[in-house]
Amino acid sequence: MYFKTFWGRDQHLIWGNLFFPRPLQKIQEAAAPIGINFSWEFSKDEGLHARHIVTDTGWKILLDRGLDIFQRYEMSDAFSFSNRLQEYRPCKAFEVTYLQ
């Protein structure tokens, strides 16, 4: 997965997996009412396995776990804070590298 993000209302994703377009469509539908233009494309590079974000200001953020940083939590408990608020979810160990 590769994000090219512009810190504003336009978000573009280059996706390496051709088998999951539905979640991307759901993100696009959810983002539109709040003014975020979310778009994506599928990479033609069969070997793409990048886990990084590139900003329009020249920063590259490398995520060694990708976006899979949270430990398992109870998703079916409507009253669990970790179910609704990310700041209450325990994280797995991971590294983030910032490059400019």
Rank of each mutant, 00 (worst) to 15 (best):
residue 73 Y to W: 14
residue 46 E to A: 07
residue 54 V to N: 03
residue 5 T to W: 04
residue 40 W to T: 08
residue 53 I to K: 02
residue 3 F to T: 03
residue 71 Q to V: 07
residue 30 A to L: 13
residue 85 L to P: 06
residue 58 G to C: 06
residue 72 R to L: 12
residue 23 P to Y: 04
residue 23 P to E: 01
residue 87 E to H: 12
residue 45 D to F: 03
residue 23 P to F: 01
residue 75 M to S: 14
residue 39 S to A: 10
residue 11 Q to R: 05
residue 27 I to Q: 01
residue 12 H to S: 06
residue 13 L to P: 00
residue 85 L to S: 13
residue 86 Q to F: 11
residue 25 Q to F: 12
residue 43 S to Y: 00
residue 99 L to W: 01
residue 45 D to Y: 03
residue 27 I to L: 08
residue 27 I to A: 08
residue 21 P to Y: 02
residue 53 I to V: 14
residue 77 D to C: 14
residue 65 R to E: 07
residue 3 F to Q: 04
residue 13 L to Y: 06
residue 37 N to Q: 11
residue 78 A to V: 10
residue 3 F to L: 13
residue 70 F to Q: 12
residue 77 D to S: 15
residue 21 P to E: 05
residue 13 L to D: 02
residue 64 D to W: 01
residue 65 R to Y: 00
residue 81 F to K: 14
residue 19 F to D: 08
residue 4 K to V: 09
residue 9 R to W: 05
residue 45 D to L: 07
residue 43 S to R: 00
residue 29 E to T: 12
residue 56 D to G: 02
residue 49 H to V: 05
residue 95 E to K: 14
residue 48 L to S: 01
residue 70 F to K: 11
residue 19 F to N: 08
residue 96 V to I: 15
residue 76 S to T: 14
residue 71 Q to N: 13
residue 65 R to M: 02
residue 57 T to N: 06
residue 47 G to K: 09
residue 95 E to M: 09
residue 4 K to L: 09
residue 57 T to L: 08
residue 4 K to P: 00
residue 71 Q to S: 11
residue 1 M to R: 03
residue 83 N to H: 13
residue 1 M to Q: 07
residue 73 Y to P: 01
residue 10 D to A: 07
residue 20 F to Q: 09
residue 64 D to M: 05
residue 5 T to G: 08
residue 74 E to M: 06
residue 77 D to T: 10
residue 29 E to C: 06
residue 34 I to E: 07
residue 11 Q to I: 15
residue 13 L to H: 04
residue 92 K to G: 07
residue 53 I to D: 02
residue 12 H to A: 07
residue 23 P to T: 02
residue 90 P to N: 00
residue 12 H to K: 09
residue 97 T to E: 05
residue 60 K to G: 04
residue 66 G to A: 05
residue 27 I to V: 09
residue 72 R to A: 15
residue 85 L to R: 15
residue 7 W to V: 15
residue 99 L to N: 02
residue 6 F to H: 13
residue 49 H to S: 10
residue 22 R to D: 13
residue 96 V to G: 07
residue 11 Q to W: 02
residue 94 F to N: 12
residue 17 N to M: 05
residue 98 Y to N: 06
residue 70 F to T: 14
residue 62 L to S: 09
residue 58 G to L: 07
residue 59 W to L: 13
residue 81 F to S: 09
residue 86 Q to D: 15
residue 35 G to Q: 04
residue 12 H to G: 01
